[in-house]
Lab assay of single mutants.
Amino acid sequence: TEKQERAIEYIRRLGYSEEEARRILKKANGNPDLAKEIARRIG
């Protein structure tokens, strides 16, 4: 989804690889607090 793409872009800007960014997002899917934090940061 567009939100996922924005989140991946944001995480990659922090210096993670695409693969790492996707792994972090997968974790965020099972972790509402982390997901909220990422969403808050990407606006």
Rank of each mutant, 00 (worst) to 15 (best):
E5W: 10
S17I: 02
L14E: 02
A7Y: 05
Y16N: 02
K27R: 14
R41I: 11
A7L: 09
G15A: 01
E18P: 06
A35D: 01
G30P: 01
I42L: 15
K3E: 15
I38F: 05
E20L: 07
R6N: 12
N31T: 03
Q4V: 14
E2T: 12
K26M: 13
I24P: 00
R13F: 10
A35L: 03
P32F: 08
E9H: 07
R6T: 10
Y10K: 03
G30K: 04
A21L: 03
N29M: 10
I38K: 03
D33Y: 08
I11D: 00
G15L: 02
I24D: 00
G43N: 15
E5N: 12
D33C: 07
R6M: 14
Y10P: 01
L34W: 07
E2L: 08
I11A: 01
E20K: 05
N31G: 02
P32Q: 04
R41W: 08
R6F: 08
G15H: 02
R13D: 11
R40N: 10
I24Q: 01
A7H: 03
N29P: 01
E18K: 07
L14R: 03
K3W: 08
Y10F: 09
G43V: 15
I8Q: 02
E2R: 11
I8A: 03
K36N: 04
K3A: 15
A39N: 02
I38M: 10
G43M: 15
E5C: 14
E20R: 05
A28C: 09
T1I: 13
A35W: 04
K26R: 14
R12A: 05
G15Q: 01
I11G: 00
K26H: 11
R41D: 08
A39F: 02
Y10V: 06
R40H: 15
I24W: 04
T1L: 14
N29A: 09
I38Q: 04
R41N: 13
L25E: 00
E2I: 12
R12M: 15
E37S: 11
I11Y: 03
K3G: 13
G30F: 11
P32K: 03
A35F: 03
R12E: 05
N29W: 07
T1A: 12
G43H: 15
E18G: 05
A28D: 00
K27V: 14
L25T: 01
E5I: 12
L25K: 00
S17Y: 02
L14V: 02
A28M: 04
G15E: 01
R41K: 13
E9L: 10
K36W: 07
E5S: 09
G30C: 06
E9M: 09
R41E: 10
L25Y: 05
A7W: 06
I42Q: 14
Y10R: 03
L25N: 00
R23G: 10
R22I: 09
R22F: 09
I8D: 02
L34V: 11
E2M: 07
G15N: 02
N29S: 08
A7E: 03
D33T: 11
E2Q: 12
E18F: 08
E20H: 07
I11P: 00
Y10N: 04
I8S: 02
E19G: 08
A35Q: 02
G15V: 01
K27M: 15
K26A: 14
K26I: 11
N31I: 06
R6Q: 14
Y16R: 02
P32Y: 07
K27W: 15
A21M: 03
R23V: 10
I8Y: 08
E2H: 08
A7Q: 02
K3Y: 08
A35V: 03
R23Y: 14
G15Y: 01
L14C: 07
R40M: 13
R40S: 09
G30Y: 12
K27H: 13
G30H: 06
N29G: 14
I11S: 00
N31Y: 05
E5Y: 09
I42E: 14
K36H: 04
A35I: 03
K27L: 15
E18R: 07
I8N: 02
I11W: 04
R6P: 06
A35G: 03
I42F: 14
Y10A: 08
R23I: 11
T1F: 12
G15S: 01
E20G: 06
A28I: 03
R41H: 11
N29D: 09
Y10W: 08
E37K: 14
A7V: 11
I11E: 00
E2K: 12
K36Y: 11
E37T: 10
Y16A: 02
A21V: 05
L25R: 00
R40I: 13
K36G: 05
Q4H: 09
K36L: 14
